[in-house]
Computed example of a mutant assay.
Amino acid sequence: MTTSMPASERLGSHIKRTEQALNATKTAVLKPAGLTVAQYAALLCLDGNPGISAAALARLCGVTPPTMNTVLKNLQDRALIDRTPHEWHRNVLETRLTDQGRAALADADAGAVRVERALGAAFTDEEREALVALLGRCTEVLERERP
C-alpha cells in the first residue's frame, strides 16, 4: 500500500521524534534523583501550585487523572508529598510538597535545567522565539482539528 504522504513530510513524525529524544534524555538525567519524568513534572507543578487537586494537576501535566493518581501515590509512598482533605470540600485532597519533596525536586531540577539550557543554546534568541511561536501554532491547529 502506498500512502498519500511520505513520512519525511509528516510534521507529526518530526515532532514525535523530538519529544521521544527529550523524554529519553530527561529520563536519564532524572534517574539519579530517583524520579520519573511524570513524577518530576508533578513535583514541578506542585511547587508552583501548592494545594492543587489531583484532577487540576493532571490537566497541568497533560496526563489522565488515573495516571496522575498513580504518580501521586508513588510520590506519597516516598514521603515527597502530603495529601490532606480540603477545608470545605472533604472529597477533594489538597496536595503539597514535603521538605523531602522540595529536596528531590531541587536535585532533579538541576539535571532537567541543564537539558533545557543545552536545547535552548542550540538556537539564537530569535530562533527560540520563532520555535516557541511555531509550536504554539501547531498546538492551536491540532486542538481545532480534534473531534
Rank of each mutant, 00 (worst) to 15 (best):
L35V: 05
E9K: 07
R128W: 05
H86M: 08
T18A: 09
A54Q: 02
D77Y: 07
R59E: 08
A7E: 08
N49W: 04
T2F: 09
N74T: 10
E129Y: 08
A38D: 03
R137S: 09
P147R: 13
N69P: 04
E129K: 10
A56I: 06
T84D: 10
C138N: 11
T18Y: 06
A24G: 07
I15Q: 05
V63N: 00
E145T: 11
G136N: 06
V141D: 09
I81P: 00
C45S: 14
A28T: 04
T2W: 06
G111L: 02
V71E: 00
T84W: 07
D109Y: 04
P147S: 13
T139E: 13
V29F: 00
P50M: 05
L11A: 09
C138Y: 15
Q20C: 11
H89G: 13
E87Y: 09
N91A: 09
R102Q: 08
L30Q: 00
R146K: 15
A130L: 14
T70L: 14
A108W: 01
P6S: 05
T2S: 11
L105S: 02
S4K: 07
T95I: 04
A24I: 06
V141K: 12
G34W: 03
A33F: 00
A133T: 05
L105W: 01
A103Q: 11
R114A: 15
A112L: 05
T84V: 12
P6T: 04
E19Y: 07
K16Q: 12
C138H: 13
D109Q: 12
V113W: 08
C61W: 00
V63T: 03
L131D: 01
L43E: 01
G48N: 11
A118W: 04
E126T: 10
M1G: 11
A133S: 10
P50E: 06
K31P: 02
L35D: 00
L142D: 11
A56N: 12
L105G: 01
A56R: 06
T70A: 15
K31Y: 03
A56S: 13
L75F: 03
N69G: 15
L119F: 05
L46G: 02
R117Y: 07
R90D: 14
R10W: 08
R96K: 11
R90Y: 10
R102W: 01
C61Y: 00
L97M: 02
R83T: 10
A122F: 09
D47L: 06
N49F: 04
M5K: 08
R128G: 03
T95V: 09
L57C: 13
P85H: 05
N91I: 04
W88L: 10
L93C: 05
L44H: 06
G62C: 15
R102A: 04
S8Q: 10
G111Y: 01
C61L: 05
R102L: 06
E127H: 12
G12P: 01
C138T: 12
K26S: 00
G34N: 05
L72I: 10
A56V: 09
T67P: 02
R78V: 03
E126V: 10
P147L: 15
E116M: 15
R144E: 10
C45G: 11
K31C: 03
L44N: 04
G62A: 13
T36Q: 06
A103P: 06
A55S: 12
Q100K: 14
K26E: 01
E140H: 14
L80I: 05
A103E: 12
D77T: 05
D107S: 12
P147W: 08
